[in-house]
Design a binder for these strands. Structure first.
Length: 273
DNA sequence: CGGCCCTAATTT
DNA sequence: AAATTAGGGCCG
């Protein structure tokens, strides 16, 4: 009962969005847009979102609404979003940041995922390959854990970039994803950094701590959590609780090209094998 | 390995 | 709406 009262007070007395524990930190000058099913932070300079944040549940994953394909400019962006034309003939996919396949629970959410503010120029082999594969795992984790929190987007501080279209959409060199399981018994978090090229390795090779993603992206994830909980979750990576159907072919993994990893000082992951 | 079916995104 | 392209998973 006390909990209920506290919850009501919390929601009614705190600023917009702050009840969403998936949200990264954002300053007052940030362009934050709430769409059905997700929140995004837009970066006008690179003409795409820096992050999209959302909760994903088992019920949502099991939705049945069809992909809507209604790619269109996002009218909510103050200085206008990228356009279809920017991507046309560029050689890059209009890659969803929040996946359309995570929006099958609602026609509005599905449609909202096709705003150009949710697109980023992705190498087709990347978008349809390892990125899609990772997205599939995220949906599986949503089912296994009942609900998870996801933040994902392009890494926008590892330029210089190639640009496409008249609006100069930056072609990111890497993408990240962080996933939080905030339900007992296992509070766990995992991060990924993947280069925007065809992925040749098992996904476990791209897994990192959330701390590592924070260093690389300069984004403070899950800042709404209390500092001690946040510190505990983000500094640790236990691959054994995130089923990635690990490829056990050690030979294949020995000569992994890690040049796509931006150098970071610490790597606190501990493999379970 | 090829054959087959599935998913996702794009093109026409 | 249908066809195309890319890739994954599975199976024999």
């Amino acid at each position: 009962m006390k909990k209920c009262i506290f919850l009501v007070l919390f929601i009614t007395t705190t600023p917009l969005f702050s009840q969403n524990i998936e949200l990264p930190y954002y300053s007052n000058s940030s362009e934050i847009i709430q769409h059905t099913g997700y929140v995004l932070k837009y970066n006008e300079q690179f003409e795409q979102a820096e992050w999209v944040a959302y909760q994903l549940t088992d019920i949502e994953v099991n939705g049945n609404y069809e992909r809507s394909n209604n790619f269109r400019k996002d009218p909510h962006i103050s200085k206008e979003s990228a356009t279809l034309k920017d991507y046309k003939g560029s050689g890059y996919d209009r890659g969803h940041i929040i996946p359309a396949a995570d929006m099958k629970w609602s026609p509005d959410a599905m449609s909202a995922s096709f705003f150009m503010s949710n697109m980023s120029p992705q190498d087709p082999s990347f978008n349809r390959g390892i990125w899609k594969k990772l997205e599939g795992h995220v949906r599986k984790w949503a089912v296994e854990n009942r609900e998870i929190y996801v933040v994902t987007g392009p890494v926008l501080i590892d330029g210089p970039y190639q640009y496409i279209g008249v609006n100069n959409v930056a072609v990111p060199k890497h993408y990240y994803k962080v996933v939080l399981d905030y339900l007992e018994p296992e509070l766990e978090a995992i991060g990924f950094i993947l280069p925007n090229i065809k992925g040749n390795y098992p996904l476990s090779q791209y897994a990192v701590t959330v701390d590592e993603v924070e260093k690389i992206t300069d984004i403070d994830f899950f800042y709404i959590l209390s500092d001690d909980v946040e510190e505990m979750l983000e500094s640790d990576l236990d691959l054994s609780v995130w089923s990635l159907s690990l490829n056990i072919d050690v030979k294949k993994d020995q000569n992994v090209d890690t040049t796509y990893w931006i150098n970071t000082s610490s790597d606190t992951r501990h493999n379970s094998n």
